[in-house]
Design a protein around this nucleic acid. Structure first.
Length: 958
DNA sequence: ACGATCACG
DNA sequence: GACGTACGTGATCGTA
């Protein structure tokens, strides 16, 4: 394997376009724009430098487009006809790519009459045929057809792709994830969906989803097209029949020519050490001083570049926040799991603790027996202070079947848990040592249960969220989990939990994993976390993420952790009684429904229900959705009920009860923690792209309140004896923020006067306030927050779309600031790619300029809403971070586990548990902290109203 | 694993 | 001129 050849083929032309859009507009000393060339140069550098890496190149060549004309234009004169001219300041950079490539002494290939893609395909196949591995450095979807493995003369030879912008490998799985079919069928999918960028027609009206579904079902393009004959009458059928020729033409256009001339023999592409002369000259000529410095430091062999030199970016007139600037891979050795240490003695542990104190920055990760931080036992702790400088400290490992207190359990040598924690405590609590975690809230909770405090902290997951919320693009994940971050930023795949512990029935608890394997896995997690921190943290100041991370999100981590540990008491008996009542009532309804249907069926099956209602009983209400299934959702059933269908009413009642029982009354009883007797939710700080929290296991942010029957469930959330629950919620916070952000004088005045805002809107719009006009005004107010469309509003108001348009016009007339806000927000998001809250939280919208209208409009609506929803989230988060210190200052803090405790957050509401006698004093503090939460960072032009109530239960507190 | 449905702000 | 019809979530169920 050591002498296996690995050819890297760089799609130079495509790269420079992307680099241009993602890097700051740098210029060289002569004033020539070179930002894209800089990006290209660092990328080449990095690739060439990976020569010795496990998956690095042994051979490398750059392929460029010779001209904009190719044989495809002969087949189809409209091919790429809609391509706009490249931006003015990019044009002079094209020839520089050639210069850069030559400076590295790398082969640079351009062929007439074919495209770079074809040359790449030809070289890739030629290399594969000789048994070489091939990596195509590009993210062009046409090239994804080539990905895969074929038998070669000495074992399988694989072709994959590397997207250096995203630091992501694209293998068969990624291709399949993107297209829903294997790489060899990608051409068929492309032929159906077409490509607006290349002006490839495809089938009009068929997008990626439909295309991949059709190909997956029928196997290939011809079969998919033939299948149209037998399809039921539909738009799709018509289109497939009508545009068949387009698809067939497209198939030819997307097919790569794999037998181009190969002007440079494969062997001549071997990577050699790079003569420094030409490279130095090139770097000097373009003022790439940071790279020059690295060249010098690296004694002739290029070292990896760490990032864009911020000083340089500034010199070029950049603001220091290059949008979309993905930094190249950090300067670190490859992960080497054999370097990790398993710490089994007190001496070894003490040495590590000293090492951490010395390092000042340490990544910490806990391994536990289960996922639930409130129940899991601590099994081990891993630490990392540098790349590959990591250890695992097993604390409760034992052989299979030897768990618990079994005296026959065989335990490998390890330090007693209590002793190890006692030794670690000072370091974990030391102000002089920053503890980094990936989702460190989990570790905080586990360790807190053992009496261990961890502070100060940093969290790579939260940093990633502050930088890249929403940034995921189709086919490439945008999440903030460790494996994904590692893949994206480090190009490294950590051992997966499954590989170590197995899956399903064969899964074993982490405590039973042999120590050598456990060390590899656990220490690697700490190592990767340390590396991610090294990589991500410096991006915060450069990309404007510091404020929201330092001022809003980081301080919240221990606060939310504490809320989770606090938990909330639920009245089990009351829930059980409700479950029983619901079951009885459901039984009665079931009988009635079956009687009316004339047969027994599963009411909970929308499919069966649809058949009964619309086929057997003959009610009207057509098919819907891709599945070709009848829709039986609430709106449709209510319509049927309105037309006198008794069965629809009964089904609606049954559904309500079924939902309440399974999701709430049954599930909440099961969620009671046996040790604490309370329910502990888990909040995700990165769950919602807008910056809101989300709540899981169980979700306590969607407990019923809107109907009387559902509200009974809230009555089951109760305070401990002698205590009450207090609920404090912001009143109309999003509308208030909209009034402020869009600067609407009449709405602001209404809020200042404490008026009923929907009534005020009704008065402005309709001249009078009645029940109907107020209801309509309320609908319109929400429509505004969510990004309005005339059709959407029409549906909600029960009028036609022309009338809805009238209503919208009137609204914009009366409140002109709103229209401005919407258009200015959209212009900005389209330009920069992200929206921003008043506190600087960014949410990215990678699809805001999509050619697909549905996708684009969806992004537009989300982008209108995100600054408002996100600012509201920022405000309540700030209130949460300040709440306990303020209460403590007022002498109301937790006292022997009592006093005022913050339990829940529901987007605009905070729930507390407190001694009955503290209600009045606590209300004053809580109201003040919440009302002033925006200050001093942001001065709002409207007051923030806070409503407070209390009672024995959450229901009563409202 | 995924869509349909429905609970919340 | 068609597209598909309000923003943000999570849990459960039936079905593939």
């Amino acid at each position: 394997m050591a002498d296996k050849k690995h050819l890297y083929l760089v799609d130079g032309s495509a790269y420079i376009f992307r680099a241009y859009h993602r890097l700051p507009p740098l210029t060289n000393p002569e004033g020539t724009p070179v930002g894209a060339v800089y990006g290209y140069t660092t990328m080449l550098w990095k690739l060439a430098d990976d020569l010795d890496a496990a998956d690095g190149p042994t051979h490398l060549a750059v392929i460029l487009d010779k001209s904009s004309h190719s044989f495809r234009n002969e087949i189809y004169d409209q091919y790429k006809a809609n391509r706009p001219d490249p931006p003015e300041d990019l044009v002079p950079q094209f020839p520089l790519i050639r210069d850069a490539t030559r400076a590295f002494s790398l082969p640079c290939i351009e062929e007439p009459d074919v495209e770079a893609d074809d040359v790449i395909a030809s070289y890739a196949r030629a290399a594969q045929a000789q048994g070489w591995d091939v990596t195509i450095v590009s993210s062009d979807k046409d090239l994804m057809q080539l990905v895969g493995e074929e038998a070669g003369p000495n074992g399988p030879a694989k072709i994959d792709m590397l997207d250096t912008m995203k630091s992501a490998r694209i293998g068969p799985e990624e291709v399949e994830e993107k297209f829903g079919v294997t790489p060899d069928k990608v051409g068929d999918v492309l032929a159906l969906m077409g490509d607006t960028a290349d002006n490839i027609p495809g089938i009009y009206g068929v997008g990626p989803k439909t295309a991949s579904k059709l190909i997956a079902e029928h196997g290939n393009l011809t079969a998919a097209l033939d299948s149209a004959e037998d399809m039921k009458k539909s738009k799709l059928k018509e289109r497939l029949l009508e545009h068949r020729a387009d698809a067939e033409l497209s198939r030819i256009l997307v097919t790569l020519k794999e037998d181009c001339e190969l002007p440079v023999p494969l062997e001549d592409m071997a990577l050699k050490s790079i003569p420094p002369g030409p490279l130095t000259e090139f770097l000097q000529a373009h003022g790439f001083t940071s790279l020059l410095r690295r060249l010098d430091a690296g004694s002739g062999s290029p070292e990896r570049s760490n990032d864009l030199n911020p000083a340089k970016a500034q010199k070029a007139g950049d603001e220091g926040t290059p949008e979309g600037n993905r930094q190249p891979l950090p300067d670190m050795p490859a992960v080497d799991r054999s370097a990790y240490e398993c710490v089994q003695t007190r001496d070894a542990l003490d040495a590590w603790i000293a090492k951490c104190m010395n390092a000042r920055v340490v990544a910490v990760d806990t391994e536990t027996s289960a996922l639930d931080a409130m129940q899991a036992d601590l099994v081990g702790i891993s630490l990392a202070v540098g790349p590959n400088d990591a250890c695992y400290i097993p604390l409760d490992h034992h052989n299979e079947g030897g768990g618990g207190s079994d005296m026959f359990a065989e335990r490998p040598e390890q330090i007693a848990r209590e002793d190890a924690l006692e030794a670690l405590k000072p370091m974990l609590a030391s102000d002089a040592v920053l503890k980094i975690g990936q989702n460190i809230k989990y570790d905080l909770n586990v360790l807190a249960r053992y009496g261990v405090d961890v502070s100060p902290i940093d969290d790579t997951m939260i940093i990633s969220f502050a930088l890249d919320a929403g940034r995921g693009e189709a086919g490439i994940g945008g999440g903030h989990g460790m494996d994904e971050l590692s893949q994206r930023h480090l190009g490294h795949t950590p051992l997966s939990f499954k590989e170590i512990c197995g899956t399903g029935k064969k899964q074993i608890p982490f405590g039973e994993v042999p120590l050598d394997r456990a060390t590899e896995y656990a220490a690697e997690d700490a190592d990767v976390t340390w590396r991610l921190h090294k990589h991500l943290k410096p991006r915060l100041p450069v990309e404007g993420g510091t404020k929201v991370y330092e001022r809003v999100d980081r301080p919240l981590i221990p606060v939310v952790a504490m809320m989770e540990r606090n938990g909330i008491k639920v009245d089990r008996a009351r829930l059980a009684k409700l479950s029983e009542e619901f079951a009885t009532e459901m039984g009665k309804l079931e009988t009635l429904i079956h009687e009316e249907a004339g047969e027994e069926f599963t009411i909970g099956s929308p499919k069966q229900l649809g058949t009964i209602l619309f086929e057997k009983l003959g009610y009207k209400g057509g098919r819907k959705g891709k599945s070709g299934q009848f829709s039986t959702d609430q709106a449709i059933l209510e319509k049927l009920a309105g037309d006198g269908a008794e069965i629809a009413t009964r089904v609606l009642e049954w559904r309500q009860l079924s939902k309440l029982k399974s999701t709430y009354t049954d599930a909440l009883q099961a969620a009671i923690n046996p040790d604490t007797g309370r329910v502990h939710t888990s909040y995700s700080l990165v769950g919602a792209q807008t910056g809101r929290l989300s709540s899981t296991d169980p979700n306590l942010q969607n407990i019923p309140i809107r109907t009387a029957i559902g509200r009974q469930i809230r009555e089951a959330f109760v305070a401990d004896d002698g205590n009450v629950l207090l609920a404090a919620d912001y009143s109309q916070i999003e509308l208030r923020l909209a009034a402020h952000m869009a600067d609407v004088p009449s709405l602001k005045e209404a809020f200042e006067q404490g008026e009923d805002i929907h009534a005020r809107t009704a008065k402005e719009m309709y001249g009078e306030v009645t029940r109907d006009t107020r209801a309509a005004a309320k609908t319109i107010n929400f429509a505004i927050l969510y990004g309005i469309s005339r059709w959407g509003l029409a549906g909600r108001l029960g009028v036609d779309s022309d009338e809805a348009q009238e209503v919208i016009n009137t609204y914009f007339d009366r409140f002109p600031g709103i229209q401005n806000y919407i258009s200015e927000t959209l212009i900005q998001v389209k330009e920069r790619g992200y929206s921003e809250t008043l506190f600087g939280r960014k949410t990215w919208f990678p699809r805001i300029n999509s050619k697909n209208q549905t996708e684009r409009q969806g992004s537009e609506r989300a982008a209108i809403n995100a600054p408002i929803q996100g600012t509201s989230a920022d405000i309540i988060k700030r209130a949460m971070a300040r709440m306990m210190p303020a209460l403590e200052e007022a002498g109301l803090g937790p006292r022997n586990g009592k006093g005022v405790r913050m339990l829940l957050q529901v987007h605009d509401e905070l729930v507390f548990e407190l001694p009955e006698g503290d209600v009045e004093a606590a209300s004053t503090v809580i109201e003040k902290v919440m009302a002033e939460a925006a200050e001093p960072a942001v001065k709002l032009s409207i007051p923030l109203g806070v409503d407070i109530g209390h009672g024995k239960s959450w229901g009563e507190a409202h």
